[in-house]
């Protein structure tokens, strides 16, 4: 399975890492999580709470938390910030134009959170398979990623439906986390 391969890269020091997947509702968070785990993605409904994967590989542990993005749930996101090593922000690249302002505001507000201060940030410009999808460069502009000085970040265009670039993105975030932890001591 793809994710286990990524996990193999972890060095002895980081026995347990925690990744938090957030983004507006309908962005494709749960589909991405299921896809990288080799699960069926045809019957996914909106997440009304959390959806966790714990991967245990030779004593290395990867915990991935996907929390629902509906407006009524977003106020609970802060309960899941503690000990987050990597934040994955998922964007529906073919979303209605008026939703990008909301998407940008939510992301930038997360970046001011003290408990997320040390986290590596991966932005998935998802749904690249859709004809109306904006490119990752366009998404980067809309979300004003250049202004981010506080976090290591990377944007990756992907599709949860075709699976394109999902492992590339996860690989970046796991590698960035490992490097950072390694440099700390």
């Amino acid at each position: 399975m793809g994710l286990l391969t990524v996990l193999k890269k972890l060095k002895q020091k980081e026995k347990e890492i925690r990744i938090l997947i957030l983004g507006l509702d309908n962005a494709g968070k749960t589909t991405i999580l299921k896809r990288i785990n080799g699960e069926d993605i045809s019957t996914i409904s909106p997440t009304l709470g959390f959806n966790i994967k714990t991967l245990d590989y030779n004593g290395y542990k990867l915990n991935i938390w996907d929390v629902g993005g509906q407006k009524s749930i977003r106020s609970y996101w802060r309960n899941y910030f503690e000990q987050t090593d990597g934040l994955v922000w998922v964007v529906d690249s073919a979303d209605r134009p008026d939703r990008f302002a909301d998407c940008k505001a939510e992301l930038h507000s997360l970046l001011t959170e003290e408990r997320l201060a040390g986290a590596s940030l991966l932005i998935f410009a998802n749904k690249q398979d859709l004809p109306g999808a904006l490119s990752s460069e366009e998404i980067a502009k809309l979300l004003d990623l250049k202004a981010i000085q506080t976090h290591h970040w990377q944007i990756v265009g992907c599709s949860a439906v075709t699976g394109d670039n999902l492992l590339t993105g996860m690989d970046w975030v796991v590698t960035d986390i490992s490097k950072r932890i390694y440099m700390l001591d």
Binding site: L4, L48, G49, F50, T54, L55, N58, E82
Partner: peptide, 20 residues
Amino acid sequence: DFTFGFCIPGSVNTWESVYT
């Protein structure tokens, strides 16, 4: 040993534990 921590009121949650 797994700590879920906070659970949203009225939520439905899924946890998959994959182990070798």
